[in-house]
Structure formats: C-alpha cells, structure tokens
Amino acid sequence: MTLDWFKRLSVGKRDAAPSTSSRWIVLDLETTGLDPKRDRIVEIGAVAVVGGAIELHDCFARVIADAGTVSAANRVIHGVTASEQSDGCTLAAALDALTHWMQDSPLVGFHTGFDIGFLQAALAAHGNTRFAKAFGQHHLDLALIAPMIFPELPAKNLAEWSGALNLPIRKQHRAMADALTTAHLLQRILSRAPSNTKSFASLAALQLGRRWLA
C-alpha cells in the first residue's frame, strides 16, 4: 500500500496504528461548505473498527485552526466554536497525523465522495499529490450500502438512519459523533448482511453494483 512506510514513523500512543488488515477507519469531516475547491476542513473525526468492534482508544480527532473565515451560520451547522478552533492545529499537521494514523486501513464513511474529495484536495494543496490520488481508493460508502441492506427503511441522511435504527449516539454534526454514528450504522449493516457479504471486499463489490445500477 502507498502509505505503508508511514508505519515506521509512528509516534504517540493514540496515533500509533496497529497493523491489522481487519482494521477499518470510519471517518467524518466538518467543513465550511460543500465545494472542495473553495471550502475548508474545520474538523476531522475518525475511529477504528476492528472485527466489527469500535475501538474507542484507537481514534483521531482534530480541530483545524487555519480554516479561514468561518461564518456564524456555518458554526451553527458543525458546532465547532471559535475558541476550539484557535486551540486547534494546522491543516498540514492534521493531514500528516491522519495519514500516519490511518496507515493502509480502508475507509468507511457516509457520503464518502464528499470526505475523500476534501481530503484529496487538501493533500494535493499541501504537495502530497501522490498520496492524494491513492487516498480513499478503498472505501465503503454507507449512504449507498445501507439502503441495499435495509430496503424497508425510508431513511436518507445519517440522522434519519440513526433514528430509524435507534442508534445510541444522540449528538449530531460533530465530526466524532457522526463518525461514531456511522460506525454504529456499519455494525448494523454487518449484523444483517448475509454471512458471505461481511468482508470489506464483498461489501465494496455490493457498493460497486449499486453504483452501476444507479
């Protein structure tokens, strides 16, 4: 994998990644808007899921200090306060730490196209064009997979899935809370998926099929 050599650089316990192929990363971003070219990342929240269990200690959370001007209306959406932001780190440092922490673990998200678009743009902007291309090559988008596993539920966005499946996290629209809700949604999907469709590869194939259909 492209990011393999980062393993050797591991520092700090929380950011140190256990090297296991069953480790999936569930990630969510809060941003200033919807356009990866113009808008900025405000917060990154991610947690590792190993063998279907959410590993609370194996997580990643950063608030980005240099996210440009954040409007009050935008703050209402993602809930990141100005003082939290001023205590945050630079986007460059966050990206370094994130790629380091993730290693070669595949990505899971809700509308992953959005998150991957932002991260690729940011990596490219910081001169990591090589990684930018590889980033998110392997990923599962639960926004596509969940309706295939739970066709009877009318849910569309993450909040609706959380409500329809009675997922335990109540808070929304903070990167970590949404990443955890996505992880719980993943757990429900894994529980209901046929026994031959629980691996990353088979779920990815399912997702691909859905894409072709759409």
């Binding site: 279907g52 269990a53 590993e55 609370l56 200690h57 719980h184 757990q187 429900r188 529980s191």
Partner: peptide, 11 residues
C-alpha cells in the same frame, strides 16, 4: 474504565 473500551452490536 473506558481507556481501552470497545463498542459492539449484538442481535
């Protein structure tokens, strides 16, 4: 207590 906790789902 939660420093190495995991969260799991069970049917």
């Amino acid at each position: 207590l939660l420093s190495h906790a995991t969260v799991t789902y069970h049917a």
